[in-house]
Write a protein that binds this DNA or RNA. Structure first.
Lengths: 149, 149
DNA sequence: GTTGAAAAAATATTGAG
DNA sequence: CTCAATATTTTTTCAAC
């Protein structure tokens, strides 16, 4: 789908605050709210907008620790290994990467003890991985909400 | 702020779809929508809910490549280095980590050429970093929307 | 594609238990 | 804290340009 400047302006606003009323978006981009409605609907249908999500403070729901985990996968075990990773609670993202690691996970845990349990009981001892490294996120200095559009 | 099971149920729904009408949430958790409204407002005020964001398909807006970038920061240059990283377009997250890297960035770029520009012109040659490694994300196998609540 | 206006639906507010 | 009822605002639809 081709996006014009109006679409991009709408996306910028919705990335920032997905609950901005269409009437307010319309006012800001100087169009009618029916147009905004129409364009948003088309971007949703086309998969440009993938969804709307509340972002929840991890600490408020008991997750004190985040980490990135690099993994080396044994040859031929990829499919199986990934499938088991997906089932582990606390695993939020699984990325296939170039460089030092084949897979990088992003995980959350209640505290460092639980993170250790997660890593040693469920990941490190899991068949199919030859090496792992846990990089605990001490703090997140910066995080944009969305892409530069 | 203390969260009870009702609050958590609301958070689960809003993480999944931030535009779910309060009336629909009320129906699902078997409460009135005024209650939902009240609880959501309090969770917003308390910072439990940090915001609502549309998630945009990166490819649809021209970002074909994502990467994780590990960086080593020279002693005493941390503040200054981080500040300059924040200003680079395409840098979406800056995490301070334990382990092999001091800082891990998450970046997006239009294509691998642009990623190379970003990395070599703007990051690798930047003062204050002694080593860097770019891990291109070949694909994301799995990504949860939000936390396990 | 866009619009203004009407209809439908949702959210915000109020007052009381 | 929760609710029902009401007031307000937003979303959605639609004929017309």
């Amino acid at each position: 789908m081709e996006l014009d400047d109006t679409d991009r302006a709408i996306l910028r606003i919705l990335q920032e605050d997905a609950r901005t009323p269409f009437s307010e978006i319309a006012r800001r981009i100087d169009m009618s709210s029916a147009t905004v409605h129409d364009r948003v609907g088309r971007m949703e249908d086309a998969g440009v907008i993938e969804g709307y999500h509340a972002s929840v403070n991890p600490k408020a729901v008991g997750y004190g620790v985040s980490a990135l985990v690099g993994l080396r996968v044994e040859q031929g075990r990829e499919e199986d290994a990934l499938e088991r990773l997906r089932e582990i609670e606390g695993v939020r993202e699984i990325h296939l990467t170039t460089g030092e690691w084949d897979v990088i996970l992003r995980v959350v845990a209640e505290d460092t003890d639980r993170l250790r349990d997660l890593m040693f009981d469920r990941v490190a001892n899991m068949d199919g991985f030859s090496r792992s490294q846990t990089m605990i996120i001490l703090g997140t200095d910066y995080e944009t909400e969305g892409l530069p559009i």
